[in-house]
Design a protein around this nucleic acid. Structure first.
Length: 892
RNA sequence: GGGAGCGUAGCUCAGCGGUAGAGCACUCCGUUCACAUCGGAGUGGUCACAGGUUCGAUCCCUGUCGCUCCCA
């Protein structure tokens, strides 16, 4: 017997453990079936489940469960990402708290040991949380980006790309994070609006007593200036091109050059050029042969003492300037401005708001800094990745994201992949005594290569840097399947089917997987990239810890159950729109689960039991034939919607069927049968109810796996678990005559209810009903459904008459009039108003149709079926109008 | 500055060339033998604005206004 109320918490953990134990999540149950493969976007090992994960994994699980039921051999490959910077920061913070130590005093080896220990004890949280959501990944295949196998893949890829010239070392400006002390990629830089100033500085023009005024947001970089640029077409300033400036505070002579970069409209039209500390200036410097003078150290402090580049050409640098050495960049900025002011070289200061680059992890201002780093020639790798999408080998859903993808890929910059961290894949590069680099998969191979090169054994030093985390993530679709080994799984499951992810990591991850997959597997990593929305809070704000508007999915699961959360996310996952999550929605779908549970209880109480031999095609009772057809239509809607990744439509279709068709009408309509005396009808109805319940559980399972599995097991002896059952397919269900009859019956009941409410008939009062001018068909239907109609419309009797009794409310039902004698109850004025209002509505509709039918253009050009439809509808409305007028007349 | 998207019921959102929909909220009624986490009935919309295409536009096109996001 089903419990009176159902409590998700009781069954979710139990069912999940059983599924996992019995191996339902593993592929290989159907070795001959077509494989279906999804690789999970690996969450950070430091992470905990947030709403984005919940949405992302709910969608994947719906697809995976759906395809598993449809007979595909499903692999959902799970795993986590080592998340270089994030993890290193977590452990460093821990060290700081625990014993006030830092990684540098520990040393690299000890620190890494500590990180691994942390990973072992705390790194699994996210996997446990995904289980709570119901994610049916094959946990036996769980991978970690720093696993031995995945690390081997990383080495192989790095070495091969290096040998192919697609990975190289280069000295250029990088985005340097002065807090984390590492280079980061363009994508890890976020632009933030900063309120600052525009400082106007006077630079003396050599050989004159004049100045050229430059405007800058970063006065402290002036120590590294190696030129001043003006636009060659700038009539006011172009005469200065070719002259020299004596750089204040330093004494260095620097040229005034002509370059288009200097916008005549901005600032003064003249701009100071610091090639070592600004990306634009770097390019200007290259074009004009200007020196690159670095004046900052890795912490963002002034570095001028013993700085040969700085001192070269600087004549008698004043002590005051040299005293800036070692100052933080922001402190130095203040001092330099003061010094300019003291010397009368500060022209003016304007408040200025501008975008400044910040590290996405550290949130400090990023310093463009001149260093040697490793780069990937992304432009080269992007070419086939662009072509694959152009040719449709991989398609985005929704399709408009392809544009974003193309846009970025066609303008892609070299990818800086080295990071000055410890946690990550150490770069397999070794340096000889003279700096010659040997890139090999192992130290032994590097030593051998060095010996060949030098003709003698030498000592090598390994590159200290590690790789960008996204480098290993880029290999995820094949590295997790065993590559570089030629495993069975790799052969069977690559190319994968669909990648489900948010648009925020199209560049970080999707693009790079495309590049690496095509280069190493010669085939794109997935057929389809499904891009889902961002989950925002109720007000549309991005959820963030600092705003405090984060909704914790685990709390929602605790409160409403995983099924409710999953269904909510699916129902709101319309394409191309962000999800604004409101708790009330989750509550509503929790109620949906309860509704289903109660429907099952009702069925059980009425002796409904699963019958494996039941065939819905054999049903004779009209209401049963009708619900079977409705079931089949619902299956088609759900299936089609899922095939097109329209999760909200799929969820909507099953929701509406369960609640508004099955519970509201079918179960209500069969009550008289179930308590009646027609044993054959009763038996058939019970069997049909059991069958429909089963179909509901099957169709709903991908969305609400827990409650459906629980009901499946509690409502019959089953040969198979629901998770492993076959998705239904129907042939020949649907009976137009049954549909018409039930539609009429439902309309009858609804109309009577509506009038009762409007006439303020007490809900408990049973009233009589007279059918006027009913055709023989209508009489037959009314006889057939008398009990059901009386029960649901709260009528005491249904009789046939030629005339409506006086003092009755009247309802037009096709050719007949349903009259409700309400002597003493009816308010004639109200009834008159009601009918008049209806008449108005009809008249308006007719007028609209007439407007069309009297339009020669419409008659000539509208498609015939639309024309026909309009005529039919007009005929219907006209007939109806006559009935209502008749009813109105009878009121006197 | 370049790109993408969104303005539909009080709120959150579907829909999309031919009768404008859901959930929540609200109002009224209800202890009808599955369910008050429920049932029944309602209120509520110049589909942002202005043009255009079309026999017909909430839907397609153009522009305007407002908002969001991505990239510089």
């Amino acid at each position: 017997m089903l419990e009176k109320t159902f409590t998700p918490a009781d069954m979710e953990a139990r069912l999940y453990a059983q599924w996992e134990e019995r191996g339902f999540f593993k592929p290989g149950h159907k070795p001959r079936a077509e494989p279906f493969t999804i690789v999970i976007p690996p969450p950070n090992v430091t992470g905990s489940l947030h709403m984005g994960h919940a949405l992302n994994n709910t969608i994947q699980d719906i697809l995976v469960r759906f395809e598993r039921m449809r007979g595909r051999d499903v692999l959902w490959q799970p795993g986590t990402d080592h998340a270089g910077i994030a993890t290193q920061m977590v452990v460093e913070r821990l060290l700081q708290k625990e014993n006030q130590t830092d990684r540098r005093s520990m040393g690299r080896e000890a620190f890494l040991k500590r990180v691994w220990a942390w990973k072992e004890e705390s790194g699994g949280a996210i996997s446990r949380q995904l289980r709570r959501l119901g994610a049916s990944c094959d946990w036996s295949r769980e991978r970690f980006t720093m696993d031995e196998g995945l690390s081997r893949a990383v080495l192989k890829v790095f070495v091969q790309l290096h040998k192919e010239g697609l990975i190289y070392k280069d000295k250029r400006l990088v985005n340097w994070d002065p807090k984390l002390l590492t280079a980061i990629s363009d994508l890890e830089v976020v632009q933030k609006e900063v309120k600052g100033n525009l400082w106007y500085l006077r630079y003396p023009i050599e050989g004159t007593d004049q100045f050229i005024v430059v405007a800058t947001t970063r006065p402290e970089t002036m120590l590294g200036d190696s030129g001043v640029a003006v636009h060659p077409g700038n009539d006011k300033l172009k005469h200065l091109i070719g002259r020299q400036v004596r750089l204040p505070l330093v004494g260095r002579l620097i040229p005034i050059v002509g370059d288009d970069y200097a916008d005549p409209e901005k600032g003064t039209g003249a701009v100071k050029i610091t090639p070592a500390h600004d990306f634009n200036d770097f390019d200007v410097g290259k074009r004009n042969g200007l020196r690159q003078i670095n004046v900052l150290d890795q912490f963002g402090k002034i570095l001028i003492e013993g700085n040969a580049d700085f001192l070269e050409g600087a004549a008698d640098v004043p002590a005051g300037t040299m005293a800036l050495h070692g100052l933080d960049r922001f402190e130095a900025r203040k001092r330099i401005v003061e010094m300019f002011e003291a010397q009368g070289l500060l022209d003016k200061i304007e408040p200025h708001t501008h975008q400044a680059p910040h590290g996405d992890r550290s949130d400090v201002v990023i310093e463009p800094w001149l260093t040697e780093q490793w780069y990937v020639n992304a432009a080269e790798l992007a070419r086939p990745a662009i072509a694959a999408v152009e040719k449709g080998e991989t398609g985005f859903v929704p399709k408009n994201w392809e544009k974003t993808y193309f846009e970025w890929m066609r303008n892609i910059q070299p990818w800086c992949i080295s990071r000055q961290l410890w946690w990550g894949h150490q770069i397999p590069a070794w340096y000889g005594p003279d700096g010659t680099v040997f890139v090999e998969e192992t130290e032994a191979l590097a030593l051998a290569a060095a010996e060949r090169h030098f003709g003698a054994r030498v000592t090598l030093t390994r590159d200290e840097d590690v790789l960008d985390t996204w480098f290993s993530s880029a290999l995820w679709p094949f590295s997790t399947l065993g590559w570089p080994e030629e495993t069975q799984e790799l052969k069977r499951h690559y190319k994968t089917d669909v990648l489900v992810t948010g648009f925020d990591i199209i560049f970080f991850w999707v693009a790079r997987m495309m590049m690496m997959g095509l280069h190493f597997m010669h085939e794109a990593p997935f057929h389809t990239v499904y891009i889902h929305a961002l989950v925002r809070d109720e007000k549309g704000q991005k959820m963030s810890k600092s705003k405090g508007n984060v909704i914790d999915p685990l709390e929602l699961i605790d409160a409403y159950g995983a099924d409710a959360l999953r269904f909510t996310l699916a129902a709101m996952a319309a394409q191309g729109r962000d999800i604004k999550l409101a708790k009330a929605r989750v509550e509503g779908y929790r109620n949906f689960g309860t509704k289903l549970w109660n429907a099952a209880r009702f069925a059980e109480m009425n002796g409904v039991a699963h019958d494996p031999n039941y065939d819905p095609l054999a049903a004779r009772v009209t209401v049963n034939r009708w619900i079977s057809g409705e079931t089949a239509r619902t299956e088609a809607k759900v299936r089609q919607a899922l095939e097109e990744y329209r999760f909200n439509e799929a969820a909507g279709a099953i929701y509406q069927f369960v609640w508004n068709v099955f519970c509201d009408w079918y179960l209500e309509l069969i009550k008289p049968i179930l308590t009646g005396t027609d044993e054959a009808a009763k038996a058939e109805t019970r069997a049909t109810t059991a069958w429909v319940m089963d179909q509901i559980l099957l169709l709903l399972h991908p969305f609400m796996p827990f409650v459906t599995e629980e009901l499946w097991q509690q409502t019959g002896r089953r040969s198979q678990w629901l998770i492993a059952s076959d998705w239904p397919s129907y042939k020949g269900l649907g009976d137009a005559a049954a549909d018409a009859e039930m539609e009429w019956t439902i309309r009858f009941i609804s109309e009577v209810r509506s009038v009762r409410a409007e006439m303020n008939v007490p809900a408990g009062a049973k009233i009589g009903c007279v059918l006027v001018s009913a055709s023989s068909g209508t009489r037959r239907r009314a006889d057939a459904w008398e009990n059901e109609i009386m029960r649901l419309a709260r009528l005491s009797s249904i009789v046939f008459e030629e005339q409506a009794p006086k003092a009755s409310a009247q309802i037009v039902l096709d050719e007949a009039i349903v009259a409700l004698p309400l002597e003493g109850v009816i308010d004639f004025a109200a009834e008159k108003t009601r009918l008049s209002k209806e008449l108005e509505n009809i008249a308006r509709d007719i007028a609209a149709i007439d407007g069309r039918l009297n339009n020669s253009g419409f008659l000539a050009k509208a498609p015939p079926e639309v024309l026909e439809e309009s005529r039919e509808r007009k005929a219907e409305l006209t007939a109806r109008k006559a009935r209502v007028e008749e009813a109105l007349a009878r009121l006197g």
